[in-house]
Amino acid sequence: MPAHSTNPLISRRIILLSCLAAVFSFFIVADRASWADDFIVIKNAKNSVDSVSVAEVKDVFIGRMKTWKGGGVVVTVLGSEGSPGFAWLAEKIFSVNAKTLMSKIKQEVFKGEMNKPISVADDDEAISQVKGNASAVAVVSAAKAASLPAGVTVLATH
Protein backbone atom coordinates (compact mmCIF):
# COMPACT_ATOMS: atom_id res chain seq x y z
CA MET A 1 0.00 0.00 0.00
CA PRO A 2 1.47 3.39 -0.96
CA ALA A 3 2.49 5.59 1.96
CA HIS A 4 0.36 8.55 0.89
CA SER A 5 -2.68 6.88 -0.58
CA THR A 6 -5.94 8.84 -0.16
CA ASN A 7 -9.41 7.47 0.20
CA PRO A 8 -11.23 8.54 -3.02
CA LEU A 9 -14.48 8.98 -1.07
CA ILE A 10 -12.83 11.49 1.29
CA SER A 11 -11.27 13.35 -1.65
CA ARG A 12 -14.65 13.70 -3.33
CA ARG A 13 -16.16 15.01 -0.11
CA ILE A 14 -13.39 17.58 0.27
CA ILE A 15 -13.88 18.74 -3.32
CA LEU A 16 -17.64 18.92 -2.82
CA LEU A 17 -17.31 20.90 0.42
CA SER A 18 -14.80 23.26 -1.21
CA CYS A 19 -17.20 23.90 -4.08
CA LEU A 20 -20.06 24.56 -1.67
CA ALA A 21 -17.89 26.95 0.37
CA ALA A 22 -16.84 28.77 -2.81
CA VAL A 23 -20.44 29.13 -4.00
CA PHE A 24 -21.55 30.29 -0.52
CA SER A 25 -18.71 32.84 -0.36
CA PHE A 26 -19.60 34.10 -3.83
CA PHE A 27 -23.19 34.75 -2.79
CA ILE A 28 -22.07 36.56 0.38
CA VAL A 29 -19.60 38.75 -1.51
CA ALA A 30 -22.08 39.37 -4.33
CA ASP A 31 -24.76 40.25 -1.81
CA ARG A 32 -22.48 42.68 0.03
CA ALA A 33 -21.36 44.22 -3.25
CA SER A 34 -24.94 44.68 -4.31
CA TRP A 35 -26.31 46.20 -1.11
CA ALA A 36 -23.25 48.34 -0.50
CA ASP A 37 -24.59 50.97 -2.87
CA ASP A 38 -28.24 50.27 -2.36
CA PHE A 39 -28.76 52.73 0.48
CA ILE A 40 -28.47 56.47 0.53
CA VAL A 41 -28.82 59.32 2.97
CA ILE A 42 -31.86 61.58 2.62
CA LYS A 43 -32.65 64.99 4.11
CA ASN A 44 -35.43 67.53 4.26
CA ALA A 45 -35.45 69.81 1.22
CA LYS A 46 -35.38 72.88 3.47
CA ASN A 47 -31.93 71.86 4.70
CA SER A 48 -29.50 73.99 2.65
CA VAL A 49 -26.66 71.46 2.95
CA ASP A 50 -26.51 69.56 -0.36
CA SER A 51 -23.54 67.28 0.14
CA VAL A 52 -21.35 65.96 2.92
CA SER A 53 -18.21 63.87 3.10
CA VAL A 54 -18.29 60.31 4.42
CA ALA A 55 -16.51 61.57 7.53
CA GLU A 56 -19.30 64.10 8.02
CA VAL A 57 -21.92 61.37 7.65
CA LYS A 58 -20.18 59.61 10.53
CA ASP A 59 -20.19 62.82 12.55
CA VAL A 60 -23.91 63.29 11.94
CA PHE A 61 -24.93 59.81 13.03
CA ILE A 62 -22.66 59.72 16.07
CA GLY A 63 -23.54 63.14 17.46
CA ARG A 64 -20.26 64.92 16.71
CA MET A 65 -21.97 67.24 14.23
CA LYS A 66 -24.67 68.87 16.30
CA THR A 67 -26.00 71.52 13.91
CA TRP A 68 -26.27 71.93 10.15
CA LYS A 69 -24.48 74.78 8.43
CA GLY A 70 -27.89 76.41 8.08
CA GLY A 71 -28.23 76.38 11.84
CA GLY A 72 -30.81 73.66 12.56
CA VAL A 73 -30.05 71.05 15.22
CA VAL A 74 -29.29 67.67 13.62
CA VAL A 75 -32.05 65.08 14.06
CA THR A 76 -31.21 61.51 13.09
CA VAL A 77 -33.80 58.96 11.99
CA LEU A 78 -32.75 55.32 12.25
CA GLY A 79 -34.17 51.86 11.75
CA SER A 80 -33.63 49.06 14.20
CA GLU A 81 -30.29 47.31 14.73
CA GLY A 82 -31.44 44.48 12.49
CA SER A 83 -32.63 46.64 9.60
CA PRO A 84 -30.72 46.57 6.28
CA GLY A 85 -30.27 50.36 6.31
CA PHE A 86 -28.71 50.30 9.77
CA ALA A 87 -26.43 47.44 8.73
CA TRP A 88 -25.35 49.47 5.69
CA LEU A 89 -24.61 52.50 7.87
CA ALA A 90 -22.60 50.37 10.30
CA GLU A 91 -20.56 48.38 7.81
CA LYS A 92 -20.21 50.79 4.90
CA ILE A 93 -19.80 54.09 6.75
CA PHE A 94 -18.48 53.12 10.19
CA SER A 95 -16.69 49.86 9.27
CA VAL A 96 -18.15 48.08 12.30
CA ASN A 97 -21.00 45.63 12.78
CA ALA A 98 -24.52 46.83 13.57
CA LYS A 99 -24.32 45.75 17.21
CA THR A 100 -21.18 47.81 17.78
CA LEU A 101 -22.66 50.89 16.12
CA MET A 102 -25.89 50.61 18.11
CA SER A 103 -23.87 50.33 21.31
CA LYS A 104 -21.85 53.42 20.32
CA ILE A 105 -24.99 55.44 19.55
CA LYS A 106 -26.54 54.43 22.87
CA GLN A 107 -23.37 55.47 24.65
CA GLU A 108 -23.32 58.88 22.96
CA VAL A 109 -26.97 59.43 23.93
CA PHE A 110 -26.15 58.35 27.49
CA LYS A 111 -23.21 60.76 27.58
CA GLY A 112 -25.49 63.59 26.54
CA GLU A 113 -23.41 64.16 23.42
CA MET A 114 -26.14 63.07 21.03
CA ASN A 115 -29.87 63.53 20.85
CA LYS A 116 -31.78 60.28 20.86
CA PRO A 117 -32.43 59.18 17.24
CA ILE A 118 -36.01 58.91 16.07
CA SER A 119 -36.68 55.20 15.72
CA VAL A 120 -38.59 54.04 12.64
CA ALA A 121 -39.92 50.70 11.46
CA ASP A 122 -39.29 51.06 7.72
CA ASP A 123 -38.26 53.37 4.86
CA ASP A 124 -41.73 54.86 4.48
CA GLU A 125 -41.74 55.97 8.09
CA ALA A 126 -38.20 57.32 7.74
CA ILE A 127 -39.20 59.38 4.70
CA SER A 128 -42.25 60.65 6.54
CA GLN A 129 -40.14 61.74 9.53
CA VAL A 130 -37.64 63.53 7.28
CA LYS A 131 -40.45 65.26 5.44
CA GLY A 132 -41.86 66.54 8.72
CA ASN A 133 -38.62 67.81 10.23
CA ALA A 134 -36.40 70.36 8.48
CA SER A 135 -33.28 69.12 10.29
CA ALA A 136 -33.86 65.38 9.97
CA VAL A 137 -31.65 62.94 8.12
CA ALA A 138 -32.16 59.22 7.47
CA VAL A 139 -30.85 56.20 5.57
CA VAL A 140 -33.24 54.58 3.09
CA SER A 141 -32.91 52.09 0.26
CA ALA A 142 -32.00 53.46 -3.16
CA ALA A 143 -35.19 51.93 -4.54
CA LYS A 144 -37.29 54.02 -2.15
CA ALA A 145 -35.15 57.09 -2.78
CA ALA A 146 -35.91 56.86 -6.49
CA SER A 147 -39.40 58.14 -5.80
CA LEU A 148 -39.04 60.56 -2.91
CA PRO A 149 -42.01 62.82 -2.18
CA ALA A 150 -41.79 66.60 -2.44
CA GLY A 151 -39.91 68.06 0.51
CA VAL A 152 -37.38 65.21 0.75
CA THR A 153 -34.15 65.01 -1.24
CA VAL A 154 -30.96 63.00 -1.40
CA LEU A 155 -28.00 64.19 0.67
CA ALA A 156 -25.08 63.55 -1.65
CA THR A 157 -21.91 62.07 -0.16
CA HIS A 158 -18.43 62.52 -1.52
Binding site: V73, V75, V109, G112, N115, K116
Partner: peptide, 9 residues
Protein backbone atom coordinates in the same frame (compact mmCIF):
# COMPACT_ATOMS: atom_id res chain seq x y z
CA UNK B 1 -34.27 60.06 30.82
CA UNK B 2 -33.51 62.47 28.01
CA UNK B 3 -35.48 64.62 25.62
CA UNK B 4 -34.79 67.23 22.99
CA UNK B 5 -37.09 70.08 22.04
CA UNK B 6 -35.38 71.83 19.14
CA UNK B 7 -32.30 73.49 20.70
CA UNK B 8 -33.13 72.58 24.26
CA UNK B 9 -31.96 69.24 25.57
Amino acid sequence: ATQQLDRIH
